Amino acid sequence: MASTHKKVIVRKLDRDSLSGFVGTHFIADGKVELLNTAGNVVMIELRDIKGVYFVRDFSDSEDLTRKTFTTRPRAEGLWVRLKFRDNDVIEGLMPNDLMQVTADGFLINPPDTRSNTQRIFVPRSALTEMSVLGVIGEKVRRKPDATAQEPLFTE
């Protein structure tokens, strides 16, 4: 399997899930193109999907042991809270880059980086609410106060 094909578990809103592989451009015409473990290509409607979980192994569960951050995240990005149509809530980090936000959905990093789930693609149609909890990044340098500076030259 080429490195451009990633292991995923597609979790549907009806609690059903499918395992397989996706390519780099796995969304086409409002559907996710999945090569299942039997070798068949399956097209799944985005409106039926809760999340596409990019996983390390199929043997482990895609369920997250921790759905929220215990402290403020250290990695850079937008700290977001997503509320799903089934009232499930998850927090994650997404890039602070508008070029990576698509009309179809969002790609987030879950709170527990050591779990089986590495990233999650969440379709917009699966969400009822999305909140930005914080912007994590470089410290913003303050401009020095001009009134506190002693004048060097007099006119």
Rank of each mutant, 00 (worst) to 15 (best):
R56T: 12
M43G: 02
R142I: 05
T71N: 15
F21E: 03
E45W: 05
A146S: 12
T4A: 07
R81L: 11
A103M: 11
S3F: 15
R66I: 08
H5F: 14
M130S: 07
G51I: 03
R74I: 01
P144K: 13
P151L: 13
S115H: 08
F84G: 00
A2V: 04
T37G: 04
T154G: 04
I90Q: 12
S131G: 01
T4S: 12
N36E: 11
A38H: 07
V8D: 01
T37D: 08
D16H: 11
V8C: 13
V8E: 13
T65W: 10
W79Q: 00
D63H: 14
D104Q: 10
R124T: 09
I27A: 08
R81G: 04
D88H: 13
F58C: 00
E76R: 14
I27L: 01
R119K: 15
N116A: 04
H25R: 15
E91S: 03
G30K: 07
F69Q: 05
L46S: 02
V32T: 11
E33V: 10
G30N: 11
K12E: 09
F21S: 01
R56Q: 14
V140E: 14
L98I: 13
H25Q: 14
R142T: 11
R11I: 02
R56C: 03
T154M: 13
V122G: 00
A2K: 13
N116W: 05
N36W: 08
L133Q: 13
I44D: 02
M130L: 14
L35I: 13
L107Y: 09
M99D: 14
V80H: 08
S19K: 10
A28F: 10
L13G: 14
A146K: 09
T37W: 01
I136R: 12
G92T: 04
V89W: 03
T154H: 10
P95W: 07
Q149R: 11
T117M: 12
E62G: 08
L98M: 09
V10P: 02
I136G: 10
K7Q: 14
N116L: 00
L13T: 08
R74G: 10
T154K: 10
T102P: 01
S61R: 02
T24W: 01
D86W: 02
K143P: 05
M99V: 09
M99L: 07
K7N: 15
D48K: 12
S19I: 02
Q149N: 10
R72C: 10
V42C: 04
I108L: 06
V55G: 03
N40D: 10
S3C: 03
A2Y: 06
T128C: 06
I120A: 08
Q118P: 00
G105Q: 05
I49H: 12
F26V: 02
R66E: 08
K139G: 05
G23L: 04
A146W: 06
L78I: 05
R141T: 14
R142W: 07
G77Q: 02
Q149L: 15
H25C: 01
S59I: 11
D112M: 06
V122S: 01
D86N: 14
K7V: 02
I27F: 02
A146M: 05
F26T: 00
D63V: 04
E33H: 05
S19R: 05
D16L: 06
T128P: 01
D63M: 12
V101Y: 13
P111F: 12
G137H: 08
D88I: 06
L64F: 03
V22G: 01
R74Y: 08
Y53T: 00
K83D: 05
Q118V: 14
D145I: 09
I90T: 10
G20E: 04
F58L: 01
